[in-house]
Design a protein around this nucleic acid. Sequence first.
DNA 1: CAGTGGTCTAGACCACTGG
DNA 2: CAGTGGTCTAGACCACTGG
Lengths: 237, 237
Amino acid sequence: MMHQYQRLTELLRKKIVKGSLRPGDILPSENELCANHHLARSTVRQALDELVKEGYVTKQKGKGTIVLEPKRQSLGLFSIRGFSAIVGETASETRNIFLQEPHHTTWGDDFFFTLTEDEKAQGCICVKRLRMLNNFPAMLEYTYIPDVGLPLFRSTSFVRDSLFETLKEKFGIEIRKAEQELVAAGAVKETAKVFRIGVGTPLLHVYRKYHTNKAGLFIYSSFFCHTDKYSIGNTLQ
Amino acid sequence: MMHQYQRLTELLRKKIVKGSLRPGDILPSENELCANHHLARSTVRQALDELVKEGYVTKQKGKGTIVLEPKRQSLGLFSIRGFSAIVGETASETRNIFLQEPHHTTWGDDFFFTLTEDEKAQGCICVKRLRMLNNFPAMLEYTYIPDVGLPLFRSTSFVRDSLFETLKEKFGIEIRKAEQELVAAGAVKETAKVFRIGVGTPLLHVYRKYHTNKAGLFIYSSFFCHTDKYSIGNTLQ
DNA sequence: CAGTGGTCTAGACCACTGG
DNA sequence: CAGTGGTCTAGACCACTGG
């Protein structure tokens, strides 16, 4: 069952995405939304705060709630865009190549985040993917999910070719936030081969810990980005 | 003048930072806080939401509001830690070296974010700093502030050696959120010299656009990180 | 000046955790 | 079961933007 503020968030989000509300437009005022949807003002504000957090709108005291320019193409909690001019075009075609199907394994001895005893005992499911942007190998990603008894799923059954969408729709697991560590390092032999670059080419190496809606369940990811053509972007706070 | 929820946030934040509330402790319940501080529950919730956003506490339905492990040393909107073991010790001693004092200049022709006409006309104040962590040159940062008529300030008058604290306390400018772009690239000659590394050593290059509490005022930053010893960290969402 | 979003009050019912 | 945080109502006063 959905809450009333979530229904209003969804309704307004759809209007923005579909274009009946355009960048620069001002949303109906909070009082109008109250009247039109028979809601208390705090409920309307809860809905609007969600849209602010998602980056669809911004609020200005005395003026109103204003629709922002659309966000760029996003992958997980970040977005990718052409690097030639930092504010460049987004990659139009993205494709995932599964180098290893989801499979059960143990965490390595020196896993990059500290694990709880529970997590260590459970072992994990690992996926190894290469992300292609316009046929350019841009990102090599290892994702680790603690094995909490999920049925093993194959890439062919992914929802919209997305691991996170799959976790959400099939298992009710939603990503809430993430911590990440950033490092620049030269490509080692094996990685260089995947990217078709020379050993030592600078790569961006990102370590992520995703927090989910399930208490105590975290998803981990380690990925390399070849940023000669595409940079990766974040919004902080 | 401060709002009541801000006063409560500050009071609780201080208790956590000073240690009278320790990690794992449960805060007084929302109803208790209401009674003790003579506030409505929505005001108390506003205060607690702020602490959640700042990463000091987490809430659990049915249980309460729980104090989290202290965050790591932070610089701006990110934190830095020893890289040897990703979850390593924080740098104990940080120091800023001003390579160029705040000075007025023009934006370059190919500035890394798109500027408005107003911003272009105003020109900017630029600061060039080298951040040392335990005497290791870890970060070279260029910060650009649109010249909206701020009196030129010198590094010696910085509040707590921090640009952001200075902007906040002297000019009422607060950072709300930021967008960033990440790239890995080899050091060029001039940069290599500053870091005392070889040309071509992989560096993390970050471009940031900070949003402030003043509508239309953005602060820009471009920085290089030498991540052999220290990685930089973020929290997303 | 009327209208906006920001803060705040004093209530209510609910699903959830733990004893 | 009593207590918790999550949602929701129906009001109020305020500082701010723009005509």
